[in-house]
Each structure stands twice: as C-alpha cells, then as structure tokens.
C-alpha cells in the first residue's frame, strides 16, 4: 500500500505546518499597531480568515476544472475530484464567513454588512449548497455526475460577476494585498500571514487527497453491493 504511506506523510506534513502556522499567528507575529487598542487581538484572525477564504476559492476552482474534465472525458475520477473539492470548499467557506463576522463585530461594530467580499462568500456558500442539493436529488450516478458538472461550471463562472457587481454597489472591506492601502501588513506579520496561507494550502491538498481516497472506497463498496445484490 504505497499510496497510504504517502498519504501518511502528507497528513503529518499538513499537521506540522498548521501547528507552526498557529504558533506564528498567535505568538510570534507582532501586535498590529495601525488599529485601535481594542481590536488588536481580533486582528489576528487575518491569519486564519484570509487563508480560509483563499482555500474556498481554490476548492471552487478545482471543482470547476474537474467538472470540465469530467464532461470531456466521462471519467468518474473527475467527478470524485469535483465533489470532494466542493465538500472541503463548503467547510472553508463557512469558516471564512463566520470568522469574518466575528472580526467585524469589534472592527466595524456590526456582525454583518453587505460588503462585496462577505456577500460574495455567502453566495459561494449558497452555490455549494445548491450543488449538493442537485446531486442529492438525482439517483442515477452518471446523470448525477453530468448535471453536477454542468452546474459547477455555471456556478463558478458567476462568482466573479457577483463579486464585481457588489463591489460596484459599495465597499468597506480592507484590501490586504494592495500595498498602497494603509491596512498593509507589517514585516513580522507578513511572514506569519504567508506561512499561514502556505499551511492552509497544504491542509487543503491533504484533505482533498484523503477525501478522494474515501470516495474511491465508497465507489468500491457500491460496486460490491451491486454485485452481491445482483447474484
């Protein structure tokens, strides 16, 4: 079982990377000095909030590409990739939305605003949920995979348009990567920030690899059950 051994290595690397990221974010990174005293601890959410948001987009993109590949090749592997990534994406989208909301309370003095990014992530969550509702409503595996792939493509393509339209409507979200903005990260902070991004990406790859393994097992079980009931 060579694949399970490499999975073990990946699991270990992901766990260590996340532990280091937690240490860097909570202990090593300096206090933010460009925000008022009360929200300085809350500012540390950035090391988890932004990577979660990043991963949910990566997951959505994987679903999108896998959906196209599925329609092109009709290979069940890409369907597995698509829904595995979407499942992980739901988790990270919820994490990004909830952590953002917790941060917004001290920073913006409200749990919720109709800010472009926040709203876009809510829509992304709804798209993911719709994706799984569609899957859940179809029994025949081939059709389920095909329909989900078509929906995955439409859903992913609509996200940038949603984001743009809400952005044109109004915005108060801090732009972190823009160097000209005053919300930029200090020197010690960017190490923690980028390491955290890296660690979350490893975590995503690890979760995806595990989920895909489980999905193949599920396929095998379903095939066995079919063979048994047929006899």
């Amino acid at each position: 079982m060579k694949s399970s051994r490499s999975l073990l290595v990946l699991n270990t690397v992901a766990a260590v990377a996340i532990l280091i990221a937690v240490y860097l974010a909570l202990v090593q990174a300096p206090e933010a000095t460009n925000v008022v005293e009360e929200i300085r601890p809350a500012q540390r959410i950035i090391y988890f909030h932004v990577p979660s948001a990043w991963i949910s987009m990566v997951a959505f993109f994987v679903t999108f590409i896998a959906s196209i590949l599925y329609l092109r090749t009709n290979n069940v592997r890409w369907d597995i990739w698509a829904y595995s990534a979407a499942e992980i994406g739901i988790g990270f989208t919820i994490a990004a939305t909830v952590s953002g909301s917790i941060w917004a309370k001290p920073a913006w003095n409200t749990w919720w605003t109709w800010d472009p990014r926040l709203t876009t992530y809510t829509i992304v969550l709804l798209l993911f949920i719709a994706y799984f509702m569609l899957r859940g409503a179809i029994d025949e595996p081939g059709r389920r995979a095909r329909f989900a792939a078509v929906y995955g493509i439409f859903a992913f393509l609509s996200v940038p348009l949603t984001f743009m339209s809400i952005r044109w409507w109004n915005t108060i979200h801090p732009v972190i990567i823009d160097p000209s903005a005053e919300f930029g990260l200090g020197p010690g902070m960017s190490t923690a920030f980028f390491f955290s991004l890296f660690a979350f990406t490893i975590l995503f790859v690890d979760l995806l690899a595990n989920r895909i393994m489980v999905a193949w097992d599920e396929e095998r079980v379903a095939a066995l059950r079919e063979a048994l009931t047929a006899n």
């Binding site: 829509i123 798209l127 719709a130 509702m133 569609l134 409503a137 859903a155 743009m164 339209s165 809400i166």
Partner: peptide
C-alpha cells in the same frame, strides 16, 4: 430545485 439553483447564479444580473 429550480429557484435554489437559479437565483445564486442570477444574482449579478439582478444587482445590475
């Protein structure tokens, strides 16, 4: 299922 599938994709159109 149709509105659940349709409205989140349609959102940019409605906003615009």
């Amino acid at each position: 299922l149709l509105p659940v599938l349709l409205f989140p994709v349609l959102l940019p159109l409605l906003i615009a």
